[in-house]
Every structure is written in C-alpha cells, then in structure tokens.
Nucleic acid binder design. Structure first.
Length: 291
DNA sequence: CGCCAGGCTAGCG
DNA sequence: CGCTAGCATGGC
C-alpha cells in the first residue's frame, strides 16, 4: 500500500471533500463509518472506492488530503476530485444574482467530480424519481453483488461492475436489488456498452451533439445525459435540468423557461455564465437541496 | 393515507 | 411534433 498527502493550500480555491462527495454528483464512494449523507463524518473516517483495478481511500484533515492506495493514486485522485480545476477563476465567471452568490458562499470548496463514464451512466439512469441516498444504495448493492473486490490494508473495496456483468445479471436480478422500473434500462444500456457502444466517445463531440448521442442509451433522456456530461465527460457547461433547478428557474429566472429542454438549457447556461454554467448549477442545486 | 424524489418511455392526438 | 399515463419504492 502507498500513502501520501496533498496540501489543500496547493489547490486553487481549496476543497471541501465532504461537500464534493456527498452532494449527489458521485455514487462510487462509501464512507468507512458507513454513514454517508447522515451528519458530518468523524475526523478519522475515510472515503473509499476502487477504479481501474486500484483501491483508494482519502480523507481531509489538518490542511491536507490524506490518501492510501494500492499504488500511487494521486493522478487518479486529481481526475476523480477535479483537483486541477481553478475554483476562483471558474466561480468568477458566475453572475452576481443573490441566489447564485449565496450558493457559492454556502458551498465553499465544492468541486465537480470526474467519475468513470459507465458507472456514471448507470448511476444517473437509476436517479430517475429517486432521492440521493437511495441512488447511492442501488449503486452500492450493484458493486457488492457484481463488482470485483479489491483489498487495501484490512479493507475490501468493490469496483463498479463491468458492463458485461450487469448485462448478464439481467432485469430480474437488478429488480431484486431494488432498482424498480429502472432495472430494464440498466440491463439494456449495460448490454449496449458491453457490445461496443462506448459512452466516452461523446467526449469528441460538441456539447449539444454529445448530449444527443448519450440519449441513444436506454433510460437516458436529456437530464441524465447532462449529468453524465458534467460529472464524467468534462463538459463543465452542462446544466442538468432537474426538479430543483426547474423550481429555481420558475422562481428566480422565469425568463429562462423556454418550454423545451433544449431552449431552456441554452437560456439557463447563458444565465449561469456560459463556459462553467454546470459548476454554477451544482452549487445552486446543493444550496437549494439543503434548505 | 397522499405526496414526492437529480425522469424516461411508449403511445396518443 | 408536443403531451401524458405509467412506472417502483421508501420516507415523511
């Protein structure tokens, strides 16, 4: 096992690890005290996950991100936690509306994650009409049932299942993991990916073309596609139009409601500053959800 | 009990 | 095209 520490002072704008990992962007992490989303974590608890055959643990204390990994996982952590994003520069592009500035102040240190594409695709298919802790429960059950266990120290961490494993599981077994009506969507999308349709190819397209391409997967509409673009594929302008943001549009930016998803999306992206509108959206989402 | 949750699909007019 | 019923399920 390798260990290390990344000084938070080296990260422009710092980081708040709990805000970043418990704000409903990512579902691949578990907390070693087993109490995600419930109260503030004990100072000695770790966030744990496994990606690309490596297990890793990370926690924040005394001005550093302390990590343990089966190898040197610093490059992986940079990717997963968005550590290379320049937060002050990004948030400077946000407009001055009170709700936006309040959200930025409230969520200080929140970073947009960079999760693996397939697990993000499945997690947000599962997110339809579902609360954040229950999405996490579904993903965790899929990991423990069909994922590869990787040992780090005296801990066992499960990797998110391969596409072929979820495709082989099929609708009925996924329903048994409490996926409900999302089970056939996950089974069919997993089969598509296992057969060679790679969600990551959307990276090479323009934003709106990428969103349209992702909706080819079963169970993926515009909103889920936007979540995959923002939280996995690096499209920081993507603004997922979920129930919370639609309410915010209705109450704070009614002129941005253009009827269709595509037109409303263009208007709210401009309202949220354009290039990094997805960052602004995530702060506003987190702020409203915690009221 | 009713309502809601980071919506999507299929089928209608 | 746009609109809507139906879909699982736990928490309040």
């Amino acid at each position: 096992m390798e260990t290390g520490a990344i000084p938070v002072a080296e990260l422009p704008g710092g980081i708040n690890l709990t805000e970043t990992l418990e704000s409903g962007q990512t579902y691949i992490w578990t907390r070693s005290d087993g109490d995600m989303y419930n109260e503030t974590p004990p100072a000695d608890s770790w966030y744990e996950t496994a990606v690309d055959g490596e297990a890793l643990r990370v926690r924040q204390r005394d001005g550093v991100l302390e990590w343990q990994g089966t190898t040197d996982v610093v490059p992986l952590l940079r990717q997963l936690l968005g550590l290379t994003d320049n937060l002050p520069a990004i948030l400077d592009t946000a407009p001055g509306e009170p709700v936006i500035q309040d959200a930025i102040e409230h969520g200080s240190g929140l970073r947009i994650v960079g999760d693996p594409p397939f697990s993000t695709l499945v997690a947000f298919i599962c997110s339809a009409q579902m609360r954040v802790p229950r999405i996490h429960g579904m993903v965790t059950r899929m990991k423990r049932t069909y994922g590869t266990p990787i040992t780090i120290g005296d801990r066992t961490v499960y990797q998110f299942p391969e596409p072929a494993a979820l495709a082989a599981a099929g609708e009925d077994e996924l329903r048994a993991l409490q996926l409900g009506y999302r089970a056939p969507y996950v089974a069919e999308t997993a089969a598509m990916v296992a057969n060679g349709t790679d969600p990551a190819t959307a990276r090479d397209l323009s934003y709106e073309a990428a969103r349209r391409q992702l909706t080819e997967f079963v169970g993926v509409g515009n909103k889920v596609a936007d979540c995959v673009l923002l939280f996995s594929l690096g499209f920081l302008e993507a603004v997922p139009l979920d129930t919370w943001i639609r309410t915010a549009i209705e109450e704070e930016f009614p002129a941005c409601d253009k009827g269709s998803y595509a037109a409303t999306s263009r208007a709210i992206r401009e309202q949220f500053g354009g290039e990094y509108a997805g960052y602004v959206q995530t702060y506003v989402f987190h702020y409203l959800r915690q009221q």
